[in-house]
C-alpha cells in the first residue's frame, strides 16, 4: 500500500491513507456529513422542540468529524479517543432512547443504536477500533 502511493516514506503514512483504511475514512466521512447536516438543520430550524436530541446530533457530528480527520491524517490517539466516545455514545444514547423515548422526541443518529441508519453507527466504531488495533500491531513490527 505504502509502496504503491510512493509519495510518502514508509512509517510516516497516515493511519488510513491507503487500502482498506480508505473505505473506513469514506464511511466516516459520509457519517460526519450526514450527522453534521442533520444537526445544522435541526439546531437552526427547531432547536426549542428537542434541545437534548439536537445537541446530541451536533455532538455525534463533531465526533464523526474528528474521527474522520484523525483516521485520514494519522492521528492514531485522537482517532482512538473519538471512536471510543462514539462507541460509548451510540450505546448510551441507544439505550436511553429505548428506555425513555419521551426524552428523545426526534431522532438522532444514535437513537435506537442507529436504527434509522441501518445500524451502521453501531458497527462503525467497532470496525474502527478493530482497524486501529490491527494497524497498531503492524506498526509494532515494521
Amino acid at each position: 500500500m505504502a509502496e504503491a502511493t510512493g509519495d510518502r516514506p514508509a512509517g510516516e503514512q497516515p493511519a488510513a491513507a491507503g487500502g482498506a483504511g480508505r473505505v473506513l475514512v469514506a464511511v466516516y466521512g459520509v457519517f460526519a456529513l450526514a450527522a453534521g447536516a442533520r444537526a445544522a438543520v435541526q439546531l437552526s430550524t427547531r432547536f426549542a422542540e428537542a434541545p437534548v436530541a439536537y445537541l446530541l446530533s451536533a455532538l455525534a457530528a463533531a465526533v464523526y468529524l474528528v474521527a474522520t480527520v484523525a483516521l485520514a491524517r494519522g492521528g492514531r490517539r485522537t482517532a482512538l479517543v473519538a471512536i471510543t466516545v462514539e462507541l460509548v455514545g451510540v450505546l448510551v444514547v441507544g439505550t436511553l432512547s429505548l428506555l425513555d423515548p419521551a426524552a428523545f422526541p426526534d431522532e438522532t443518529v444514535w437513537s435506537a443504536y442507529g436504527r434509522g441508519y441501518a445500524f451502521i453507527p453501531l458497527v462503525l466504531p467497532v470496525a474502527g477500533l478493530l482497524w486501529l488495533r490491527r494497524h497498531h500491531q503492524r506498526t509494532l513490527r515494521p
Binding site: T5, G18, R22, V23, A26
Partner: peptide
C-alpha cells in the same frame, strides 16, 4: 445538493486510490 456531489467525490477519490479498495470507496458513495 449533497446527493449530486457524491458520485463526483466518490469517483475522484476512487481514481486517486491506487489499490483494489478504490472500487469499495466508489461503492460506499
Amino acid at each position: 445538493a449533497g446527493i449530486v456531489l457524491l458520485p463526483v467525490a466518490g469517483t475522484l477519490w476512487a481514481r486517486s486510490e491506487p489499490t483494489r479498495w478504490a472500487g469499495t470507496v466508489l461503492a460506499v458513495a
